[in-house]
Computed example of a mutant assay.
Amino acid sequence: MAEISASIVKELRERTGAGMMDCKKALVETGGDYEKATDWLRAKGLAAAAKKASRTAAEGLVGVAGSGTRAAVVEINSETDFVAKNEQFQAFVAGVSQVALNVGDDRDTILSAAFPGGGGSVQDVLTHNIATIGEQQAYRRAAIVEVSEGAVASYIHNAAAPDMGKIGVLVGLQSSADASALVELGRGIAMHIAAMNPLSLTADDADPAQLERERAIAEEKAKAQGKPADITAKMVDGAVRKYAIENSLMGQVYVRDGKAKVSEFVAAEAKRLGADIKVTKFVRFQLGEGIEKAESDFAAEVAAAAGV
Rank of each mutant, 00 (worst) to 15 (best):
A195Q: 05
I189L: 12
V125P: 00
R213A: 13
G165D: 12
A190T: 07
I130Q: 01
A151H: 12
R140I: 05
S200T: 10
Q123F: 02
L185A: 06
P208E: 10
D163I: 02
V147P: 01
V183K: 00
E146D: 15
V147H: 02
D204P: 02
R213K: 11
G238F: 13
V125L: 01
A153L: 07
R215H: 07
G150S: 10
I193G: 12
Q123W: 01
A153H: 08
K227H: 14
A131C: 06
R241M: 03
E214H: 03
D178L: 04
A160E: 01
A177T: 05
A195K: 06
L182Y: 08
V152M: 10
I144W: 03
Q174A: 15
A233Q: 13
E220S: 13
N129G: 02
M235L: 14
A190W: 01
G120M: 10
Y155N: 14
R215Y: 09
I193Q: 08
I156F: 05
A151C: 13
E146K: 14
K166I: 08
G186K: 09
D237R: 01
M196P: 00
S154R: 06
A138M: 03
P228V: 12
R241T: 08
V183C: 01
G118M: 11
I156R: 02
V240Y: 11
D204H: 04
G172Q: 08
V122P: 00
L185D: 01
P228K: 04
V147R: 00
L211P: 07
A222M: 15
Q137E: 04
M196L: 10
G150T: 09
A160R: 00
R141A: 13
G172L: 09
A181R: 00
G226K: 05
K166N: 05
R141W: 14
A177H: 04
V145C: 10
A179F: 06
Q210R: 14
S148P: 00
R241G: 04
T232L: 13
Q123L: 05
A229H: 03
D163G: 02
V171Q: 12
A224M: 11
